[in-house]
């Protein structure tokens, strides 16, 4: 018996046509597995935001999603510039995205705030000039 399943994805930077592939794949699997729609919504939105952030800001990285009956944990590890001021980055509307990205309709400064809003636990570790690691958790209420 396995009590968890680990899914792994690679994320390339600057490839907007593929951004969202990991979150769509995870969403599809969670649906097949019969998770509560609200849980899936929380996972899909927070993971999508994280994935887009990697595409916009980092030089690429990996996503690991650990699905167990009581929680879904997403670990996003990237190599990149890191986040200089995490507190500021958490503020709604604050963005360091360049104009090029904004013109594509991204970079509204809602990435991290949305991840916080839709997850139950968000942990950010970032070293400037090295990269960022995000741990996002969504808890699953115990099944009857």
């Amino acid at each position: 018996m396995n009590d968890k399943i680990i899914l792994k994805y690679k994320v390339d930077c600057d490839d907007f046509t593929r951004a969202g592939e990991a979150s769509s794949s995870v969403k599809r699997k969670l649906k097949l597995m019969g998770f509560d729609p609200e849980i899936i919504r929380k996972v899909a939105i927070s993971l999508y935001e994280g994935e887009i952030n990697m595409v916009i800001h980092s030089y690429g990285g990996t996503i690991e999603v650990i699905i167990s009956p009581d929680e879904i944990e997403m670990i996003l590890v990237d190599k990149g510039p890191g986040i200089e001021n995490i507190e500021l980055a958490m503020q709604a509307g604050y963005s360091t995205a360049p104009d090029k990205i904004r013109s594509l309709g991204f970079g509204a400064g809602m990435g991290l705030p949305n991840m916080k809003k839709y997850s139950d636990d968000l942990n950010i570790e970032s070293i400037v000039g090295v990269g960022t690691t995000l741990r996002i958790r969504v808890y699953v209420p115990i099944e009857e």
């Binding site: 649906k31 097949l32 597995m33 009956p69």
Partner: peptide, 11 residues
């Protein structure tokens, strides 16, 4: 489309 009878089974 559910693949399992419960979450554990699905995993």
């Amino acid at each position: 489309f559910n693949i399992g009878t419960n979450i554990r089974d699905s995993i």
